[in-house]
């Protein structure tokens, strides 16, 4: 049997979903029997090769995320939105109530700091934040979603093992659905 390839990507999120992924603990060995994790924040690989499953944490907040996500969509057979931010913007989306400038000012200019000369960083190499944060399904077709903030480790493992065994997971049937 062909070994499958898994990628996990961290977009606009807090990395909590990746922490939850690590919480599958020894079950990672079960995953390792069937697949290689070829690209992840914990794997030293710069380019995203073609993969079977891409787990994506976080929402789309900048031009960089947007391009990254479009790239992943082209190279992943199954694209999974991992966690509430990826599924429905969640906490990252709470800045959508305010104009972008106010958000920047709150973080860099008006923030309490020792440095009285706070200014918005504007180096050309930095990414550009989009006006509004959007969840993954508004940008690309998402094949599967795992909501939760973060999703439980058992839910993540369940989904991974179902896909690795060529089955379609159903969070609803297994009562693994959770938000917040």
């Amino acid at each position: 049997m062909n070994r499958k390839k898994i990628a996990t990507v961290w977009l606009g999120g807090c990395s909590g979903c990746h922490m939850s992924l690590l919480d599958i603990d020894e079950l990672i060995l079960e995953v390792a029997k069937l697949a290689d994790i070829v690209k992840s924040p914990i794997v030293d690989c710069k380019e995203l090769p073609d993969v079977d499953i891409a787990l994506i944490e976080g929402s789309v907040t900048s031009d960089e995320h947007m391009n990254e996500l479009l790239h992943i969509r082209k190279h992943a057979k199954v694209l999974v939105a991992l966690g509430d931010c990826a599924v429905m913007t969640n906490v990252t989306g709470m800045r959508n109530y305010f104009p972008l400038k106010e958000v920047f000012d709150a973080a860099y200019v008006d923030a309490v700091s020792n440095d009285s000369e706070g200014s918005v960083p504007g180096h050309p190499a930095l990414l550009h934040l989009n006006d509004k944060v959007v969840p993954l399904p508004e940008v690309v077709d998402v094949d599967f979603v795992i909501p939760g903030c973060p999703p439980g480790a058992d839910a993540i493992f369940y989904v991974l093992s179902e896909f690795l065994n060529d089955r379609i997971p159903d969070l609803n049937e297994t009562k693994k659905l959770r938000y917040g």
Binding site: A81, V87, M88, T89, G93, N96, Y97, K132, V134, P135, P137, E138, V142, V145, I146, P147, L171, N172, L177
Partner: peptide
């Protein structure tokens, strides 16, 4: 069984 929301948030 709502796993995601298909409509854009109105904010």
């Amino acid at each position: 069984g709502m796993d995601h929301i298909r409509y854009p948030f109105l904010f």
